[in-house]
Amino acid sequence: MSSILTYIAISEGKIKRSSLEVLSRSKAIADANGLACEAIIIDENASSFTDSVQNYGASKIHIVEDSIFSQHRNTPLLSALSKVMEASKPKVVAFASTEGTKDILGALAANQKAGVVADVSSFDLTSSGVIAKRPVMAAKVVGNVEVTGETILVSVRSGSYELVESPITAEVNTIEFSSSESDLKAKLREIISATGDTIDLNEAETIVAAGRGVKDEEAKSLITELARVLNAGIGASRALTEAGVYDPSLQIGQTGKVVSPQLYIAVGISGAIQHVAGMANSKVIVAINKDADAPIFEVADYGIVGDLYKVLPPFIEELKKLKS
């Protein structure tokens, strides 16, 4: 029986929640269409994740384990995925839309002659293939896309689907794979990781995002304090990642990360479409901006018109009270 295969992304020894969201969706589609719901884990210790994965209803889990996967490398990842696809001939392969996925999705489609649609906010199976919704024109518009093909690759924006557990005991299928650094043309020299224990923005419940309005250390420390009180992840607009004030991996928007937390607090951000493209799906949006006409207020549920230096201190203080 043909299957829908979900790629489980592992990053820094943890399963990316977004790929479990996708797995939850795949499971639902599999059940509705009488397909097998399978998963694939590619990591240096892939086997250690099977339990959590079968918890979301994968009846068969393909394991590719090799030290080469300690870090993201596109060539081995590509050949591992091709190998599994050739073996299990899935109807659909679903990915969480991470940078890792973006790095290989097109190549995999070309290599497997598969149909492909990237960065969807929802997708479903039809008799002819896959239909999906995806934001276009800097997320000002939603496009309805039809994809056809023997096999179809879909990558899904994080936060598009809820996690749904449906425990099952999965058959584990370990696939022989070995690759050595030296065979690779592309050499990964080093990874400059984002500063320490920053919360993964894709998984953060709350995000405090700073923009150009956050001019100096004083403002920056207010942001840090606000984030600490709310146990929030810190994000930034391009104005600040560009200026090197925050790490580039914290950029939110069209070029940066797409996030959808429960609470998004935009501080000193004007709300350019390319920024909004990355945060418009947040559940509750708070904007703090001294310019009453800033476009960010068009998407904000709670807009505070005022100087962040004056607004944040009492705001933080009040939140502390509420927390305790």
């Binding site: 518009v141 496009g143 607004v311």
Partner: peptide
């Protein structure tokens, strides 16, 4: 792309202007 549609609209928010301390709280 078989069709386009407007992105789902967010419900209109509230805007707070005035004394920083008050509106913040």
């Amino acid at each position: 792309v078989v069709s386009f549609e407007h992105k789902p609209a967010r419900k209109a928010g509230q805007k707070f202007e005035g004394e920083a301390d008050e509106i913040a709280r």
